[in-house]
Amino acid sequence: MSESAGQPASVALFGTSADPPTLGHRSLLEGLSRRYPLVRTWASDNPFKSHGAPLAMRAALLEAVVEGLESPNLRVDQSLSSPRALDTLERAARQWPEAELVFVVGSDLLPQIQRWYATDEILRRCRLAVVPRLGWPLDSLQIEQLNRRGGRVEVLPLQIPATASSAIRRHPDPQLVPPELWPVLLEQNLYGLRSCLASRPPLR
């Protein structure tokens, strides 16, 4: 923390559709909480996707994952949620005016960033941290292009399990879901996992 301002030196920001959160999300959040003094995450609506559960429910699922990690510097902050990254960064800057904002994305999003709304302003306001995802190799040309536009791109040395929310939605598999989510998933009968679990031995 900055003693003079009472602010962290940096804040890692990670938004996700959390549809549903996976073991990969859990691993990433755990890695971020070890690397940065403050981490904030939120569930978001992606205008280019259809979602399997309402935003409020996905936020509750993400909250369950965060609570299970028990990291004091990690918290869900739904006030940061917006379809536009620039809105999120502006809100974060009002909360932590003295901190460096680190906007975390998976390597699958690298090709999209240059088409985001106000890309140059986004790159000016934050450091961009890229997390490698299996099946989405890092594109050095994309990183170079972002840096030429004024970006400060870093690749995080985190090992994330090869899990994807879309795969769970297509083929429900209890082994890919963090155990903290089961009470809500079963109560709400989300993502077809209740019927899937009924055909398997109880999880321990």
Rank of each mutant, 00 (worst) to 15 (best):
110 L>C: 12
84 R>M: 01
188 Q>R: 15
25 H>Q: 08
80 L>Q: 00
110 L>T: 12
194 R>L: 12
22 T>E: 00
166 S>C: 03
4 S>Q: 14
151 G>N: 13
9 A>V: 07
128 L>N: 08
19 D>Q: 01
88 T>D: 05
49 K>N: 12
136 W>A: 15
159 Q>E: 14
191 Y>C: 01
97 P>A: 08
50 S>D: 12
114 Q>I: 12
102 V>G: 00
80 L>V: 01
27 S>Q: 11
188 Q>L: 09
87 D>S: 08
37 P>W: 08
14 F>I: 07
86 L>R: 02
180 E>S: 13
184 V>I: 14
125 R>N: 10
6 G>T: 07
157 P>Q: 13
54 P>W: 06
31 G>P: 06
186 L>A: 08
79 S>A: 13
179 P>W: 08
23 L>N: 04
121 E>Y: 03
10 S>D: 08
13 L>E: 03
35 R>V: 06
115 R>P: 09
40 R>G: 03
134 L>F: 09
182 W>Y: 10
181 L>A: 09
109 L>R: 15
108 D>M: 13
72 P>S: 09
86 L>E: 02
57 M>Q: 13
91 R>F: 01
97 P>C: 03
7 Q>G: 06
153 V>F: 11
116 W>D: 11
160 I>Y: 05
64 A>W: 03
59 A>P: 05
129 A>S: 05
99 A>I: 04
157 P>A: 15
144 E>S: 13
83 P>A: 01
16 T>N: 04
76 V>W: 06
199 S>E: 14
146 L>V: 12
49 K>V: 14
188 Q>G: 01
175 Q>M: 08
27 S>R: 13
187 E>S: 10
158 L>I: 09
20 P>K: 00
81 S>K: 05
26 R>C: 02
36 Y>K: 09
187 E>K: 14
34 R>L: 12
49 K>P: 09
26 R>E: 13
